[in-house]
């Protein structure tokens, strides 16, 4: 009945047969559709477009076989081709996205390996760092391991660290990263010129500045104590410029392996 419903007007109208252009479009559409429908991956990633390509192709074939004009055949063949192409592009997009995810995992893996390799070479360097630290530091029985940062590391009259201080700080950071349980006390000292109170403040600011640099480089602030001793505890006499320079310093006191810091002065 339904079939008759469609064929009847076709018989009545009896339009002309399909031209060569329409046949070419139809053949192209058929070829494209065969490709996408036989690719299970395309079917999976773009099922709607594939089935529409099929529907359009069937209509084009219907027009070509029965009563359609060349324009109808061409039209539906064109739509079918487009649906097939869209399905293919969509499938390619999905594949690319999957590959992107794989590449992302590969990239993460490599970055992780790189971090580990760097850490490893940092650990190899750590022996050297330990030596460095031993060289910079002086053992003091009641205070533990102490590292002295001289005043040459500060811009004169300022609590800003200069470049070579930042390099020292970097070594410190690496040492602290390799020794995660160690804490440090950062102690500031000045020479005896100027008011004692101001000196205490300046020494605290300088110690704070070193601490801030370490924090900026990723050391947890909880691992750092900051104290300004001002002109107390000089390491040299304050009479000469040389002695005063030695007294302007920041001392880094390291805790033992278990995070036990020596008593404050």
């Amino acid at each position: 009945m339904k079939w008759f419903l469609w064929v009847a007007p076709a018989l009545l109208l009896c339009s002309g047969c399909t031209g060569s252009l329409g046949r070419q479009e139809l053949a192209d559409a058929q070829l494209l559709f065969d490709q996408v429908k036989s690719d299970p991956q395309v079917l999976e990633s773009a099922p709607r477009d594939v089935s529409r390509a099929g529907e359009s192709l069937a209509r084009a074939e219907g027009f070509a076989a029965h009563w359609g004009t060349d324009a109808d055949v061409e039209h539906y063949a064109y739509l079918s081709q487009r649906y097939s192409q869209i399905a293919r592009e969509h499938d390619q997009l999905v594949r690319n996205q999957q590959q992107s995810q794989r590449l992302q995992r590969e990239q993460d893996r490599l970055q992780q390996m790189l971090r580990e390799a760097r850490l490893l070479s940092a650990q190899q360097r750590s022996e050297w760092l330990d030596e460095q630290l031993q060289r910079l530091a002086t053992m003091e029985t009641e205070r533990g391991l102490v590292m002295i940062i001289g005043d040459v590391l500060f811009e004169p009259g300022s609590s800003e660290l200069n470049l070579s201080a930042s390099r020292t700080a970097l070594q410190l950071v690496q040492f602290l990263q390799l020794n995660p349980r160690r804490l440090v006390r950062i102690e500031g000292y000045t020479d005896s010129r100027g008011e004692a109170e101001e000196n205490r403040e300046l020494s605290r600011l300088r110690a704070q500045s070193v601490a801030q640099t370490l924090v900026d480089m990723g050391v947890a602030a909880e691992r750092l104590q900051v104290i300004g001793y001002g002109e107390a505890h000089p390491v040299a006499e304050n009479a000469s410029a040389r002695g005063r320079a030695a007294n302007r310093r920041v001392e880094i006191v390291f805790s033992d392996e278990n995070g036990q810091l020596g008593a404050e002065r």
Partner: peptide, 13 residues
């Protein structure tokens, strides 16, 4: 069926 035939003929034309 004649009614459908006529109807579809009209629509078709």
């Amino acid at each position: 069926s004649l009614r459908y035939l006529l109807l579809s003929a009209v629509v078709g034309m």
